[in-house]
């Protein structure tokens, strides 16, 4: 049987988003490193499939939101639990020289890998002056 975090149907998306924010969540551990090409971020998101992961860039903010889903046999009783919340959430501030529009995301065996490239060097541009 699959169980998951469910929202009441028919609610406004904003109200639903606000309700989701109030839900307890897990902050996933990350590795972050930078080389000449850009920044690479690795995040542990066990139990998350591709369709339950959201990576958003809003201005300079990078949002990671995901929900874990596990197949649990019917009638299972949890006797010991170290992991509590199936929701993962974390946000980061990107810096100006990073190109938020060309982020590559790969999710493999519950590990998310984000490659955030640096912006191409701002090239000098010639601005045409039109006489009109």
């Amino acid at each position: 049987m699959n169980t998951q975090l469910q929202n009441a149907p028919g609610r406004e998306p904003q109200a639903r988003a606000a309700a989701e924010r109030d839900q307890p969540f897990t902050v996933p551990p990350v590795d972050v490193f930078e080389d000449d090409h850009g920044i690479t971020l690795l995040a542990d998101l066990p139990g998350v499939s591709r369709d339950r992961l959201s990576v958003r860039v809003d201005g300079e903010t990078l949002w990671l939101e995901a929900t874990a889903l596990t197949a649990v046999p019917e009638g299972m009783e949890l006797v010991y639990g170290e992991a509590e919340y199936p929701a993962y959430r974390r946000q980061f501030t990107l810096s100006r020289e990073l190109d938020g529009s060309r982020i590559e995301a790969n999710l493999n065996d519950g590990v998310l890998k984000l490659s955030i490239p640096k912006l191409e060097e701002a090239k000098p541009r010639r601005i045409e002056v039109r006489v009109g």
Partner: peptide, 17 residues
């Protein structure tokens, strides 16, 4: 996490990657 059912003991290890 460890759970039990009448048929089995279910151990779930969150071990990504």
């Amino acid at each position: 996490n460890v759970g039990t059912t009448p048929e089995a003991i279910e151990v779930m290890a969150l071990a990504p990657g």
